[in-house]
Simulated assay, not measured.
Amino acid sequence: MRGGDKGEGGVIVHPYRGYGSHTEAFIMGRVFRQPGRLMKWEKGGAARDLVDVTRRLVRHGVRDARVDIRLGATHATVTTDRDGYFHAHIDITHTLPAEAIWHSVKLEVLSEDDAISTETEIYIPPASTDLIVISDIDDTVMYTGVANKLKMLYRLFMEKADRRTAFPGVAALYRALYGGAEGNRKRPMLYVSRGPWSIYEVLEMFFNMNRIPVGPILFLREWGMTLKRPWPRKAEDHKSDVICNMLSLYDTLPFILIGDSGQRDPEVYTEIVKMHPDRVRAIYIRKVDDDPQRDAAIEALANEVKHAGCELILARDSVSIAEHALAKGYISEEGCEAVREDTHRQQQQ
């Protein structure tokens, strides 16, 4: 059994970054089998890319593997589900270092074949946290072409991290939101995607390459795609469930939600505001189409959320979002200026 996917076959364990508070933590990962990379394609090229995509899609989860988890003096044991995923909800029984926001977690995974020890990290917001940001990824942070399903699937699975394209100014915008008005808030930045967990590594590389605060979570979903079941499982309410869970976990903090106009982000976010009035300060919707009827529908939603103490802003670019955030005190003047400069520079390229 190996930790992480470096192209080898066999049984592999891949823990994802966790998150939590000073009283509870959530850790997730997967134990799976996959075929190894064929030697004649080791030198790269389109053939190897296609093989790597196929390998990730046909990963076979190892069910009923035991996962022992230790976070300092706190210990828990869980088992993997039928798809090889493990989900641990741990009640923290000891005091964590107050100054740290990342905490090391040790895992030992036991299956019928082997055992392995590995580590991951969980993110716990500092006491100074004043706001939590939850953002969509697809056509909000980077282009995936949600209006064209085949293009979206190609970009999700075939494009490497260095060929994916971030929206102009988005990295500077998210850094500004991460830092807040003082520049050092280190706010939790949580990201949600319709994409499958098999693209987790690519998204991590994309965020790092573009200097987008990853801090800490990518909430993806299990498509359940195999050779016997080649179509994704439905994931209704995936985004809504993630956001509601975060509102419950961080129940004393306000939120900002970011999405795009191409899908149902405005509708999903509006329903969340209605269910949790006074918890969402702003909704930023990136305009990715030129449909007057869609604009009118989003404007109607903006009027609905006003009654719950929330502003919904339909924005054509990152600068519009940054200027509103600056006016509301969510980011600094320096952060806003960085968004203007980055957007201009990228648009000139």
Rank of each mutant, 00 (worst) to 15 (best):
L156H: 03
D342T: 01
I285S: 04
K306F: 12
W223A: 01
E8H: 14
A181W: 10
L110H: 15
G215A: 14
G169D: 06
I134S: 12
G84M: 04
D83W: 13
R155P: 04
L190V: 15
V67Q: 01
T226G: 09
N184C: 06
P213S: 12
K287D: 11
I101D: 15
D251L: 06
N303R: 09
H89R: 15
V67T: 02
G215D: 14
C244Q: 15
L249P: 07
A46Q: 11
L110T: 15
W223P: 01
V192Q: 04
K160E: 09
D139E: 07
G329Y: 10
V62C: 06
P196A: 08
G169E: 09
G61C: 01
V51L: 15
G4Y: 06
I217D: 15
F86E: 08
K160D: 10
T79E: 14
D83S: 11
S111R: 01
G215S: 14
K306S: 12
L156I: 14
A308T: 08
T93W: 03
S198Q: 15
D64C: 04
D68T: 02
L150D: 08
M189C: 10
A147K: 13
A338W: 03
G215L: 09
K151D: 12
K149H: 12
E323K: 04
T129E: 09
N148D: 15
E119F: 12
I137G: 00
H14N: 10
L110P: 00
L131I: 06
D91G: 11
H89P: 00
S104W: 07
R233I: 07
G180M: 10
I199F: 05
R264F: 04
D52P: 00
I90N: 03
D251R: 11
Q346I: 11
D278R: 11
D138A: 05
V31P: 00
I199N: 04
H75I: 11
T77R: 13
A297T: 08
L301M: 14
P35Q: 02
N245F: 00
D251V: 12
D83A: 13
L71T: 06
I258Y: 13
L131Q: 14
G45R: 00
A46N: 06
